[in-house]
Amino acid sequence: MLRAAIEAGADSVYCGFRDETNARNFPGLNFSPEELRVATDWAHERDARVLLALNTFARADATDVWRASADAAVAAGVDAVIAADLAVLSHLRANHPDTRLHLSVQAAAGTPEAIAFYAREYGVKRVVLPRVLSVEEIRSLTPEISVETEAFVYGGLCVMAEGRCALSSYASGRSPNLSGVCSPPEAVSFSDDHGERTTRLSGFAIDRLPAGQVGGYPTLCKGRFRGGGSDEPGYLFEDPVSLNAMSLLAGLATAGVTAVKIEGRQRGRAYVSRVTAAFRAAIDAIARGESPAPYESLLGDLAEGARETTGAYRKRWR
């Protein structure tokens, strides 16, 4: 997938180790330390950068796992480490002061004060902005901070404040911030009854889709429940929908955003190639003074629930 992203035009690729230190801890995914070293060399030969996501929160009884991953990332020669936890940031700052640090979206730092703290204490050079800010809020924020900014422009959305969701742990005992997964696959099951798909998480039915109706990921936040005085089940937390902010790229650039980010480390080559190529083409079009409109409707079939949104960027979503 790293190769697919770079070949499709990505300037940088973010990835993780094959363990609980990153927020996409799924079977068969991610890199061993040796695989990361080889992939980083491959990327550097093509003038692309590799950013290592070490963005879960170190457990008190297992901090060595996070320290070892941080050391392995530096040894592999990555261009930056993306971290959220103070312990991880502190370890990197103290032991690898020359390693560039990016503040993960999981840290939920969206104010000048919070960002200044991470820049001052840990030397963070870039902050990945929480997905709850509007373009205008970003425009107001960037002159107030001394670090680069990175904004998500495509992929999954969470309803919770970044890094503070424990919803799945009520059903499965695991959560994205501690275990690197929300809805771990061993807790998920699907059953089919005459075309009706029932999704269960740790035995709890969280959705039942009639035949032919599009759906989303098997997470509690995208489940359908009865509530709010209605007998009809509905999406109480969030509709299954994907972020697509391609139409806002020019606005994000003028708002001072340094880099844009495409979510989807658990997705496949087809997704990575198509989304990266479409955004590369849109960014290049804007740079030439042209409209990115021709590329805005190319990705709808990849979206969760087959629907796209500009999320909080347009301030309608909160």
Partner: peptide
């Protein structure tokens, strides 16, 4: 083909 997209779209 993207597997997640195929799954979403049934």
């Amino acid at each position: 083909r993207d597997a997640d997209g195929a799954f979403f779209q049934r």
